[in-house]
Computed example of a mutant assay.
Amino acid sequence: MDDAARCPCLTGLPYGECCGPLHAGTRVAGTAEALMRSRYAAFAVLDADYLSATWHPSTRPASLVLDTDQQWRRLDVLATHAGGPFDDDGEVEFVAAFRSASGSGERGRLREVSRFVREGGRWFYVDGDVHA
Rank of each mutant, 00 (worst) to 15 (best):
L22I: 00
H23Q: 12
P61V: 04
A44N: 12
G83R: 11
R74P: 01
A48H: 06
S52P: 00
L78G: 03
P21S: 13
L22W: 01
V77K: 04
A29C: 09
V45Y: 07
R39S: 03
L22D: 04
G30I: 02
F43H: 13
G84P: 03
Q71P: 00
R27P: 04
S38N: 03
H56D: 05
A32S: 02
A79P: 02
L46G: 05
T26E: 14
V45C: 14
A24Q: 15
G83H: 11
Y50W: 01
S52K: 15
T68F: 02
S58M: 12
A44H: 10
G30V: 08
A32W: 01
A62T: 12
P57F: 06
G25E: 15
R73S: 06
T80I: 12
L46S: 12
L78I: 14
A24S: 14
S52V: 07
R37H: 09
D67C: 13
A34L: 04
P21G: 13
D47K: 06
P61D: 05
W72L: 05
A42N: 11
L51Y: 05
Q71D: 10
S58Q: 15
A42P: 08
S63A: 15
S63E: 14
H23A: 10
R39N: 04
T59M: 02
P85N: 11
R60N: 06
A82N: 14
A34M: 03
A48K: 03
